[in-house]
């Protein structure tokens, strides 16, 4: 795997990393000679949070493993946009089997590496929220409980974007999707549904669970690096805005991701062996409206007569997170 010189397209955002920092503290992405695991030329939409998240995560994993990474990928946007054959954007050995089995395929790869005594090579499985929280859930849970030596990364854009924005079990309450339209007396995704996969992962008592956001590059890379330093089943859940599905401006991807964190709707934390070991305090607390208003999937809550009751319900969710994960500024 040769290093390649890349250009910085993202100047003006935080994604490149802070070059005022000491070199050793700079992000992988800030390095002009990073591996660029997910190469340019892929077919992701403008402003795709998943493309960003995947490159951040896999680049960091490559640095942490001296480029010895193999990935199994679930069906989904990431798979489709990265490998329009005969072109592939992946600079690592990469495999896609079907939608629901990425975790199991990764288990198989890890088993093969173990039996062939290729100790330095690390295995990552990745998928979107549908491939992780819904159709791939059984395989993922099996991989967790066996404590297979796999790092699973979920890029959560909160719906089935590849098929045209249908609801998943990671779709937030109140959000409009193609199958939870903004219609009727209770528009959008019903409250009281969905599942929290990081917490479910923790319930398996696996060595490492973390949440991360494309808005916080340092934190994301640090968590990937930490995960790569551990053997056994590991899980990182990365929040990745989707301009297409969320109805947001492509240039707002990082901003929206940051608002999700700052509002408390997407708490950043780490857990080891089932216990939370750290959480990232909110620096400037934002009201949920600031997050919701930038996305057309929540447009039905605003307009001429804002649905204050629903907005308050969403604020309650954020406030509960803040209390539960100790996100209050310290």
């Amino acid at each position: 795997m040769t290093l390649q010189t890349i250009k910085f397209y993202q100047t003006g955002t935080f994604t490149v990393g802070n070059r005022l920092l000491d070199e050793s503290q700079r992000t992988v992405q800030a390095n002009m000679r990073r591996t660029n695991s997910l190469n340019s030329g892929h077919r992701a939409c403008q402003g795709c949070g998943e493309a960003l998240g995947a490159r951040y995560a896999i680049d960091a994993a490559m640095r942490a493993s001296n480029n010895q990474v193999i990935a199994a990928n679930a069906t989904g946007c990431l798979e489709v946009f990265s490998t329009p054959y005969p072109e592939t954007s992946w600079q690592i050995p990469w495999m896609h089997s079907v939608f629901g089995n990425a975790a199991s395929v990764a288990t198989g790869i890890a088993a093969a590496l173990k039996v062939k005594q290729k100790k330095g090579i690390r295995v990552i499985a990745q998928g979107g929220d549908g491939g992780t929280t819904d159709i791939g859930f059984a395989c993922l849970s099996g991989m967790f409980e066996r404590n297979d030596d796999v790092l699973y990364i979920c890029y959560d854009n909160e719906a089935y974007m590849n098929t045209g924005v249908q609801r998943s079990s990671a779709t937030p309450a109140g959000a409009r999707t193609a199958t939870t339209p903004a219609a009727g007396p209770h528009p959008g995704n019903p409250f009281g549904t969905g599942k929290n996969l990081p917490l479910i992962a923790m319930a398996h008592h696996i060595p490492y669970v973390a949440t991360a956001s494309v808005a916080n590059l340092h934190d994301l890379e640090a968590k990937v690096e930490k995960a790569m330093g551990i053997h056994g089943a590991r899980y990182i859940h990365i929040h990745v805005p989707c301009p297409l599905g969320w109805g947001s401006h492509p240039s707002d991807t990082v901003k929206i991701a940051r608002l999700a964190v700052e509002s408390g709707l997407f708490p950043l934390f780490e857990a080891e062996h089932g216990e939370i070991t750290s959480s990232s305090a909110i620096r400037r607390k934002a009201p949920v409206e600031a997050y919701l208003k930038l996305q057309r999937r929540f447009a039905h809550l605003f307009g001429e007569r804002p649905d204050l009751e629903t907005i308050a319900q969403i604020q309650e969710i954020a406030d509960r997170n803040i209390a539960r994960f100790s996100l209050e500024g310290r």
Binding site: S97, N101, S104, V105, I109, C139
Partner: peptide
């Protein structure tokens, strides 16, 4: 030989798929 107890037949063959692609007789 690695023997893996999986949670379903779907996972069983999926593990074999991953292992075979990584060069192991599965």
């Amino acid at each position: 030989c690695e023997f893996i107890n999986v949670e379903s037949e779907f996972a069983a063959l999926s593990v074999a798929i991953g292992a075979s692609a990584a060069g192991a007789r599965s």
